[in-house]
Design a protein around this nucleic acid. Structure first.
Lengths: 238, 238
DNA sequence: TCAAAAGTGTTCTGCATACACCCATGT
DNA sequence: ACATGGGTGTATGCAGAACACTTTTGA
C-alpha cells in the first residue's frame, strides 16, 4: 500500500543521493543614507554578466552555517558577521543543471568594516542600493525579496540594526537607519525617549569631529547588558 | 586563486549531485486541554521502534511545499492544512546513510477533522502531548523544539490559533488555547475585550448543546474580513 | 552672524490592567 | 435549589503621540 512507502525512507539507496544543495547570502550594509546589498557579477553561463547573490555549494564536510561563514569570510574578509537563516528554495526548475536546493541567509555588516578588507579582488562584487536591484540570476530576485522582508521583521524585534552602524554612532544616525529600513519617519524626541528607556546604549563621552554644526554625542551598543536583560525576559521592540 | 572557485559553482558536474533532501513535519493538534503533536513509529533500523516526525524524501518532480502537502495528505487525509516552513537542518552526521538535508515544517490542524480521516492505518501514528515527548529518532528533538518555538512566536502575531479549533468554538475554548500555547493566564474580561475589538469573529447565533451549565455562544473566524484588514495594514496581535 | 543639526519636556489620549457579580442551564 | 461555567463594565495607570525652542559648532 502506498502509505507504507513514506515515513520510512531511511532504507534508501545510492539512487536517492542525486540532489545538490547550496547557500545563497543576502549581505546587507548601510551607508549613511541607504540600505545596500552586496552582489557579485557572474563570469560564466548561464546568466553571464548578470548580478547574483553570492553563494556556493555546501561542501561534504561542513554544516550549512559553516558554509555561509566560509563564503562571507572569503568575500568580505570578515569573520564575525551577523547572519540568520531565512528560507530554503527548491523549485524543480530553478537551476538548469539539475535539482539544486539553496538555503537562503541574510547577513548584516558595517560597510566601514568591509571597506578595510578588500580581499575580494578576484570577484567583481559591488554594493547596490536595495531600491535599485535589477534582474538577478536564477530565482535570486525572489530570494532577495524574502530576505528583505525577514530583515524588516527582525529589525523591529531584535537589536540587529546596530550591526549596520559603525561601533560608535550618533542617535541621529540610528534614527536614520530605522527610518530607512522601516520606511516611516519617527519623531526625534520620542525616538530618543524610547531608545533611552531601554538603557542599552553606552555614552562614549566622545563627540563627532569636524562637522559644521553642533557635534553629536557618540554611543556604543551594550551587548552584555542586552544579553542580561534578554535572559530576564526583556523584549527589544521599536 | 581560491576565491575564484566560489560564487561560480554553476559549472558543476554530476559529482556535485550526491546529496539527498527530505522534509519533516511537526503536525500540531489541540485537544480541549492540551497541545499535541503527531508522531509515527519507525518500523525499521536505524531507530527501530523509536518515535519520529513524519517526513519523506522530496521527489524529483515536486517542490518542497508539494512534498509536505503530499505527506500531510497521505498521513491525515487532509488537503488544506496550514503549514509554514521553519528551518533547514543539514549537519554532517545527522543521517547515517549519507548527507541528508531536511526542510522542517510545522503544520496545524483540527484534531476533530483528523479523526474523521483515518487513512493512516498503515503507519502507526499517534498524538503525543508536547509536554511528554520522549527521545525521537535522528535530530528530531532539535527539529521539534525549533518548530515549537516558531509556533509560539507565530501564534502571537498571526491568527493561526483558529486552525487548531473546530470551525465553531466558544470564547472560553479560544482563551484556553492561548493560555496553553503561551503558558500564561489571561483575564477573561480583558481577553474578550481584545478579541472583540478586532471584529474578526462571526457570531453564529448557535449555542453549545447539552452542557450542564449556561451554554456558551459559538463563533466562527472571519477569514475574509481578516484578509481585507491585513491589506489595510492591520496586524493581529495577542 | 548665520546656517545646520543637536538636544531637550510636557500634555494628551488611548490602550492594557485589575477586579466581582449576575445569568442560564442541567441535575 | 444548587452547582457549573458564561457573560458583562468601570476605574486606574502607563506608554505612545504630538509638538517648538534653545544650544553648539564651523564657516
Amino acid at each position: 500500500m502506498y502509505v507504507h512507502k513514506i515515513y520510512f525512507f531511511y532504507t534508501m539507496i545510492a539512487d536517492n543521493f542525486n540532489y545538490s544543495v547550496s547557500i545563497d547570502c543576502v549581505i546587507f550594509g548601510y551607508d549613511t543614507t541607504d540600505l545596500k546589498v552586496l552582489l557579485i557579477k557572474r563570469g560564466e553561463e548561464p546568466y553571464l554578466n548578470h548580478w547574483a547573490l553570492p553563494g556556493d555549494l555546501i561542501n561534504p564536510k561542513e554544516s550549512i552555517d559553516q558554509s555561509v561563514i566560509r563564503v562571507l569570510k572569503e568575500l568580505t574578509g570578515l569573520s564575525k558577521v551577523y547572519m540568520e537563516q531565512v528560507k530554503t528554495f527548491g523549485d524543480v526548475g530553478r537551476h538548469p543543471l539539475g535539482r539544486v536546493f539553496t538555503v537562503a541567509y541574510y547577513s548584516l555588516l558595517k560597510i566601514s568594516d568591509y571597506e578595510l578588507n578588500p580581499s575580494s579582488f578576484a570577484v567583481e562584487a559591488k554594493w547596490h542600493s536595495v531600491k535599485r536591484i535589477g534582474e538577478l540570476a536564477f530565482d535570486h530576485n525572489k530570494i532577495f525579496a524574502t530576505c528583505k522582508e525577514k530583515l524588516v521583521e527582525s529589525i523591529k524585534r531584535k537589536p540587529i540594526g546596530f550591526e549596520l552602524l559603525p561601533k560608535e554612532f550618533t542617535l541621529t544616525e540610528l534614527q536614520n537607519l530605522y527610518e530607512t529600513l522601516l520606511q516611516e519617519p519617527f519623531d526625534k524626541r520620542n525616538f530618543r525617549k524610547k531608545i533611552n528607556s531601554m538603557k542599552l546604549l553606552i555614552d562614549t563621552g566622545k563627540l563627532q569631529k569636524s562637522v559644521s554644526h553642533r557635534p553629536a554625542k557618540l554611543y556604543r551598543f551594550d551587548n552584555n547588558k542586552y544579553d542580561t536583560l534578554k535572559k530576564g525576559g526583556f523584549n527589544f521592540e521599536i
